Structure formats: structure tokens, C-alpha cells
Computed example of a mutant assay.
Amino acid sequence: MIQPPRFWSLQRISVPSVLLAPVGGLYGWVSGRRMRGKPKAVASVPVVCVGNYVVGGAGKTPTALALARIARAQGLTPGFLTRGYGGSAREPLLVDLAKHDSALVGDEALLLAAAGPVVVSADRPAGLPLLAQAGVDLIIMDDGFQNPSLKKDLSLIVVDGATGIGNGRVFPAGPLRAPLRTQIVRTDAVIVVGEGKPGDRMVRRVSRAGKLVLKAKLEPASKRVWGPRSFLAFAGIGRPEKFFNTLDRAGVPLTDVKGFPDHHAYTAEDARKLLARAEADGLDLITTSKDYARLARQEGDLAKLREATQVFEVRMHFENEARIAALITETVRRVATR
């Protein structure tokens, strides 16, 4: 399983980080210059960007889904714009759950499509006409904070409280996608998901910059009593161990776990091995919504794996949901008068 380099999470100076600092400096200069560029397009409806400062996942998709739920409660018709990471689509595409799979549009697009219209487009502005045809009056952009091509009316940054921004250095010396200062300046609010000292340090830094900080946590979408059989959990996400720990805290009895790389495309061999391990030890299988989406519209052993696997669904819970709702309302009002 591919893991981020350990030195990315170290607060002290490390040899690999120092050696890679010149490359990180060049990368940061290029990415920072790109972020400071003038947007090429302005949408006719508000654009809410859900991004993060670092490479890897932090909870953007659950946050985007929660924002859509809040927007619908306000009478809005939200839609999603995503690059479709992991998919092969090269032209803007309106996602159809009855026809498309993760190989074409990516797993995140499939999850979002259950909550509203989703357009997959690496060129964000090129996807706007399809969203307009779908009758969307609020665009939630999943990722793309560092991409300047489309004007963002509200930028919400998701930070994992357990990892923060790691060592605070720019890729590849650290996990940052661009210099932190350049990113903070363009941030409207930071959503810290979960607890941890790295997240606390991020809160202090963002607060000093005068930015709004909101707290949130991922929690089970529904409560249930687990058992009596134990589980083999598998996941191909940014931090599989985070999912396994969540299962443990929710009282899911775990006997075995198997982690895969982020956005892993499961093979028939993967399916056979997981099914065989589960059968040999008398275990049930459980995975994330994203992994389950990747198994959709498959055949043979992959279809068998999907049929035999339970999904542990989570939702994003905001500590102050009213503040999030107010941000959306303020953004809609501001865009209506521009």
C-alpha cells in the first residue's frame, strides 16, 4: 500500500525534507504563481469551492454532500463540479448512475451523483454549460481550490484535525500543494474535521490570519448494533487506517483489515483474495462508500465482492451548521448583486 512519506508528518527538521526543499521551493513558486492568476471564467451562479491545503484526502466529498443538503434546505438546487479524479473521461460529462462507472468518472463523482447533478470536467469552466442545462443555481466544486480557471465565490478548506498540514512544507518536501500563506489569503473559512494537535496548530495559525474556523466531525450515518460476526474491513482511500479506527470507535468488531492505495481500481484477483480471506475466517466484509462505488457495474468476482460487502456510511456533522448555512446565504445574496 502506498503511504505518504513519514517525514511529511514530522514537526522537526528531517534530512529528506531538507534535501527536497529546493524542489519544493520551485514547485511552490509555480503553484503559488498559478493560484495568483486571474480567473478565466465567472459562473452565472454562485460557486462554492471545497478544497484542502495538502495532497491527499481530508473529507472534501462528505463536506460537499453536507453543503448540498444545507443548500437544498434553503430552497436551492445545488449541483457538483469535479475533475473526476481516477476516471478516464476527457470531455465534460454529466454523470448518469445508470450508465457510468468509476473507471470513467471516478468514485467521488458517483457518490455526489446520488445527491444532485454532477459534471465531471478537468477544465472546470467547460463544465458550466452542462450544469446550467441541469437547472443548477448553486455550484459546489469538489476540489480545485488551487485551480484559478473558475472564479470561486466561497472557498471552504477542509483540514484533517489528526494530520493538519504535516511539516508545513510544499510538495515534495511536505504535503502542501502551494505555499501556505498564498493559500490562506484565498481562504474564506477553514473546516477542521476531528481532533488532534496538528489541527489545533492549524486553528491558531488560521485564526491569526483573521479567517473563520469551523469544527466538524465524521460520524456514522446511522446507528446500529454490530455483531455477532466479526469483519474484514478493506479500503482504498487516502488514509485507510482512519477508516479502520472509525469502525473501531463505532463498535464494529474487526478481526482483519486490508488497506489499498487511494482510489485503488480493484482487480478480480483482489476480489478473490478478499472473499477467500473472509470465508476462511468466517468474517463479513465491510468497506467505505467510495470503495463500494468503485465496485459498481462490475462483473464476475468484482460483482461477487460487491454483493458480499457491507457499506459503512458516514456523514459530515458541523458543530455550527447555522454558520455554514449563513455563509451560503451571504454568498448567494452577494453573487445576485454583482
Score class of each variant (00 low, 15 high):
residue 91 E to M: 06
residue 195 E to C: 11
residue 14 S to M: 06
residue 53 Y to K: 01
residue 112 L to H: 01
residue 109 A to D: 12
residue 194 G to D: 04
residue 278 A to M: 01
residue 242 K to N: 03
residue 42 V to G: 13
residue 175 P to L: 08
residue 273 K to P: 01
residue 163 T to C: 15
residue 310 Q to S: 15
residue 286 I to F: 02
residue 17 S to A: 14
residue 104 L to T: 14
residue 294 R to C: 03
residue 325 A to I: 12
residue 273 K to M: 04
residue 228 P to N: 07
residue 51 G to A: 07
residue 76 L to W: 00
residue 202 M to I: 06
residue 175 P to H: 14
residue 270 D to M: 07
residue 29 W to P: 01
residue 230 S to Q: 09
residue 249 R to W: 14
residue 246 T to F: 15
residue 22 P to L: 05
residue 153 D to R: 00
residue 122 A to Y: 15
residue 272 R to P: 09
residue 231 F to R: 10
residue 137 D to F: 07
residue 23 V to Q: 04
residue 243 F to G: 03
residue 258 K to F: 15
residue 224 R to L: 08
residue 102 S to N: 08
residue 117 P to Y: 04
residue 75 G to C: 08
residue 208 R to V: 13
residue 213 V to W: 00
residue 272 R to Y: 09
residue 162 A to I: 11
residue 41 A to E: 07
residue 131 L to D: 01
residue 302 L to N: 13
residue 6 R to G: 12
residue 179 P to S: 02
residue 90 R to Y: 09
residue 133 Q to R: 14
residue 164 G to S: 09
residue 226 W to H: 10
residue 201 R to L: 14
residue 154 L to D: 04
residue 288 T to K: 02
residue 253 P to N: 13
residue 327 L to V: 06
residue 15 V to F: 09
residue 260 F to V: 06
residue 298 Q to R: 15
residue 119 V to P: 01
residue 25 G to F: 01
residue 38 K to I: 09
residue 20 L to Q: 06
residue 310 Q to D: 11
residue 254 L to R: 02
residue 250 A to L: 11
residue 150 L to I: 08
residue 99 K to H: 09
residue 12 R to I: 08
residue 279 E to R: 15
residue 139 I to E: 12
residue 235 A to P: 10
residue 298 Q to T: 15
residue 222 S to C: 10
residue 338 R to C: 10
residue 148 P to F: 07
residue 261 P to K: 01
residue 185 V to D: 11
